[in-house]
Each structure stands twice: as structure tokens, then as C-alpha cells.
Amino acid sequence: MSEELSFSRDYFIEMDVRSDEAYQLASEWFDEVVFTKKLVLESSPDWGALREELKALRGAYGKVALLLVTKKPSLIREVKNRSPKALIYVQGGDMRVNRAALEAGVDALISPWLGRKDPGFDHILAGIAAKNGVAVGFSLSPLLRVSPYERVQLLLFMAKTWQLVRKYDVPRFITSSAEGRWEVRGPRDLMSLGINLGMEIPEARASLNFHPRSLLLRL
């Protein structure tokens, strides 16, 4: 019972939604929502235009994150050094990108296992993430888009990464990473993802509350 009582009084943050319709729905279910601007980069962005866009997004949504999708580690360092007024996330999946994101000390590495045949994460990377305070983002939405067989693989990689995240005390959050409205899920339902990856209930809760709050303090 106490679990459910504290649930209704709890404070939950959705760290990564990627469209206006997803933001609107998430705002009904969460206390705070971070709007993510996805930036697919093959070379340096137009910094002037990007700054303007981020300013407009901050006006519309308050808290904003910039999600880098790139194959080039150098671009991650460049964006980090420019320190735009947004959280910096990196889309994981490429092993060199995963490592570069952690070494550059961005705010979060999202789904380092995405598109891989392994977790894309190991104890070396966990050590770097912990040292540099880079959060690992556990996203639900990739699970929604794939076959049962691929769900098994994703869950295996996520559970393995969670073991390392716990052992090395790496910051982390659970998020929908919703591209659209239909991929948004409620906070307690996102917690169930963490619990089924092996988290205790307080660990799952911290992944939607304490850890997101700590990251938002950086803004």
C-alpha cells in the first residue's frame, strides 16, 4: 500500500520526447518533460541557426535537450565545447560514438545497444560514464517497434547494461524516447521496464525522479 501512496505523491520527469504531440501527452502524465531536438549530423551544424532554434524551443517547452545522431566522435566534442543551453544527449549504437560521448562528458548516452548485436557497453565504459557523470538513457520506444525475437535481444542488452550501471553507480534515467504521441507511456509504466530489467522498485523510481532531477540542475 505504501508503495502506491508514495506513487501518487511522487514527482516524475520524462527526459526525452521528440515531437510536440509527444510532449503534450507526456505533460499530462509527468511533472516535468524535456523536449528533445534531434540533430542528425554529418558535419558541423550552422551554429547561428541552431542557437535560434534552441531559443525558440526553450520558449515553447522550457527544458530542452539536443540529441546528436552522428558517426563522428569529433562532432560530439565540438557540440559539447560550444555548450548550447540544452542538455546534450548522444544516440548510442556505434561503439566509437558510445565511447566518445562518455569521454566528452555529455549529459546522457541514449541506448548504447541500439542496432547492435551486443550491449555496446562494458565495465570500462561504465567506469568512464561514472567518472564523467554521463547518464545512460534506457528507452522504451525501440522495444515497441521490433519483433518478439528482437525484443528478447534488446531486453538482454538493457539488463546487462543495467547490471554495470548499478555496479559502477552510473547516473541513468528511464524514458519513452517517444518520437510521437503513440509512443508515450506513463511514469509508473516506464518504471515497470526498469523493474523487469532487474531494478528494485526504488531504483526504478530514482530513474524517473532523482537522476533526472540531478541532470536538470545542470541547465
Binding site: L140, L144, R151, W182, R185, D189, S192, L193, I195
Partner: peptide
């Protein structure tokens, strides 16, 4: 709860369980 969180459609129409 997790099983329901992974539902994306009901009888062919998009849906979310909360």
C-alpha cells in the same frame, strides 16, 4: 504492467495502456 506498456494497438487501432 510491462506487458501492457508494450501494447501498441488494440484490434488494429493504435492504443496506449496507462
Amino acid at each position: 504492467r510491462f506487458a501492457l506498456a508494450l501494447v501498441t494497438q488494440v484490434n488494429g487501432s493504435r492504443a496506449i495502456f496507462r
